[in-house]
């Protein structure tokens, strides 16, 4: 049964609200379902999210010649196009390490932005599944995140190649990238759940997203290097320090400064907790609004 609708009422009965022994389904009130059973349920069905991701991916490449090679080609093409754009605007090709800077920021941004564009569709376009199967809806945006994370990790291989080509020497600090990727992933999950939920209530959200994302791209230190004029963005743009920290790790081979780490962590936790909270407290209401 849907999460939170249901409370096991037999003492000692397994608390499996979705397939379980005894459940009572009551009217919906906005509110977070009991957290422990919810996450238990979610964890129990992690295989579903993975399988779902696998089949979505297989289906989306079904008729292409190159198949999953596109996972590698897409980020390369996007990066080259933006590099050209910057070259045209600034009137001349920039150094190789600027290309590396651009790519590393762009990969992080792409992870977050695709999480949002896929997240918007994840509930509203799932229609039939939501109306015919009881399961924690959070699995739908999460299975998208799983796909995006895999693509992001693949693009890290490209980034590694670019760094070598640009003459950036591998550094021990690169290991810090691992926890940093966890931060990025949490950020993406928060964004994706927020958008998934927003779209159920305001179908205009999906229309707005492309513009928000483009504006957001320009507000991140990706196509430009931080300067005095852009300082105001450092703490006001939620993604700024997340991207900057990643750049510092990869390009400069440094552990990000305390201020950058603190801001990145604070924004990420805020986005993650808010996103998961709105989603979870509303998900029971989704089925009657699709």
């Amino acid at each position: 049964m849907a999460a939170g609708t249901s409370t096991p009422d037999v003492a000692g009965a397994p608390s499996d609200p979705f397939g379980g022994v005894s459940t009572i389904s009551k009217p919906y009130r906005a509110g977070v379902p009991p957290l422990v059973p919810y996450f238990k349920e979610l964890w129990a069905r992690r295989q579903f999210a993975r399988e779902m991701a696998r089949s979505t991916m297989r289906a989306s490449y079904a008729d292409t010649l190159l198949g999953r090679v596109w996972d590698l080609l897409n980020p390369v093409f996007t990066g080259m196009i933006f590099y050209l754009l910057v070259a045209v605007i600034s009137g001349g090709l920039k150094e190789a390490d600027f290309f590396a800077w651009l790519m590393s920021g762009l990969f992080v941004f792409t992870f977050v932005s695709t999480a949002m564009t896929d997240g918007v569709k994840s509930i509203v376009q799932a229609g039939g599944i939501i109306l015919n199967t009881p399961f924690p809806k959070a699995l739908l945006p999460l299975s998208n995140i799983w796909i995006e994370l895999q693509r992001f990790l693949l693009s890290m291989i490209i980034l590694f190649g670019i760094c070598l080509w640009a003459g950036i020497t591998p550094s021990v600090a690169w290991f810090v990238a691992i926890p940093w990727i966890v931060i990025i992933t949490l950020f993406a999950i928060g964004c994706s759940m927020m958008m998934a939920c927003a779209q159920v209530y305001f179908r205009d959200a999906g229309q707005l997203i492309p513009y928000i994302l483009r504006l957001w791209l320009y507000a991140c230190p990706i196509l430009w290097l931080p300067m005095k004029e852009t300082q105001f963005l450092t703490y006001t743009n939620p993604l700024y320090c997340v991207i900057l920290g990643f750049d510092e790790i990869i390009i400069k081979g440094q552990v990000p400064s305390l201020a950058t780490t603190g801001a990145a962590l604070a924004w990420t936790l805020a986005v993650f907790i808010f996103g998961v909270w709105v989603f979870m407290s509303r998900e029971r209401d989704f089925a009657i609004r699709i």
Binding site: M1, A2, T5, S6, D9, V10, P17, F18, G19, G20, V21, S22, T23, I24, S25, K26, P27, Y28, I130, L131, N132, T133, P134, R284, D285, A287, I288
Partner: peptide, 16 residues
Amino acid sequence: GILPPTKGEIETRGRM
């Protein structure tokens, strides 16, 4: 358990 009732309640026992 897919749609929450707007009013009233539904109790079930057993695997669905």
